[in-house]
């Protein structure tokens, strides 16, 4: 039985795992546009271990969503490689990537993306069933209890508020006990109070589960709650703060200025 509980999850007090969960090297994405080739992402390198959290920020059009899509295996890069658990992830078939997603990853979307014709319980059960886990109903009920929605398990998404829908989405994401959680602007569709509540819940659940978190956000405050931070501009990293490495990498812009004005 995969009953999740605080005791099952790795504690933050436990020694840090050394092995990298997600390794990204020289990642690039280019597409053909009406005026020739367009570079969406270029030169993305970083490593993320289990239990760590990474915020990706940047203005609209900087490549945040493209990067998230590549990291989750929803899209394939033009160049570079992604390793998940030490295995090449971006160069394998779509079905194998889907299988990895089902067993390793989870998502929280900005627009919730609950299945409208499934009730709350069935929505949370869906990834458990896709991953072929045992007793999906009781696991889903446990997680719904954790997000405070055990009294609404037979309700359909249309009858829930935005905050409640995102809490169902959190339950759905954590129910599979993912090793890697992707969150795309999880508070983007919520008001401040609801957004705050969802974020508290997200970090609390993440802390207990021990999953690595990749969070895309516009909100600097929210980004500051993550251990690591990548800032993108026009598809390139302009700021990379990885706390474990004790190093603040020179931004691409600063590097550019040094190269052009060596004095």
């Amino acid at each position: 039985m995969n009953k999740p509980s605080a005791s099952d999850a790795p504690s933050p007090d436990l020694p840090q795992q050394v092995a990298a969960l997600l390794e990204v090297s020289k990642l690039a994405k280019r597409v053909q546009g009406p005026e020739g080739e367009l570079t969406l992402l270029e030169g993305i390198d970083f490593t993320l271990s289990a239990g760590e959290s990474l915020a990706i920020t940047g203005p609209s059009g900087s490549g945040k969503t493209t990067l998230l899509g590549l990291l989750a295996g929803l899209d394939t890069p033009t160049a570079g490689e992604i390793h998940l658990n030490g295995n090449a992830f971006s160069s394998i078939s779509e079905d194998r990537r889907a299988r990895h997603r089902a067993t390793t990853c989870a998502f929280v979307f900005q627009e919730f993306h609950l299945v409208s014709d499934m009730n709350v319980l069935e929505n949370v059960m869906l990834p458990l069933e896709l991953a072929g886990l045992a007793k999906p109903a009781s696991t889903a009920k446990d997680w719904l209890e954790r997000v405070g929605l055990s009294h609404r398990i037979h309700h359909f998404p249309a009858t829930l508020s935005g905050g409640e829908q995102q809490r169902v989405a959190l339950a759905r994401a954590f129910a599979v006990q993912p090793r890697l959680l992707f969150a795309d602007e999880p508070t983007g569709s919520l008001d401040h109070a609801n957004g705050k509540r969802v974020i508290e819940l997200l970090f609390e659940l993440n802390q207990h589960s021990g999953a690595a978190l990749v969070l895309v956000t516009h909100d600097p405050q929210l980004a500051s709650r993550c251990q690591h931070h990548l800032e993108l501009h026009e598809g390139k990293i302009i700021k990379k703060v990885f706390s474990g490495e004790k190093l603040v990498e020179e931004s691409a812009i600063e590097k550019f200025i040094h190269q052009t004005h060596p004095s």
Binding site: E94, A98, A102, P127
Partner: peptide
């Protein structure tokens, strides 16, 4: 929409 969500959640082509 349904199929895209299933894919994101790990559903394979066969399913």
């Amino acid at each position: 929409r349904d199929n895209a969500l299933l894919r994101a959640l790990g559903g394979n082509q066969q399913l």
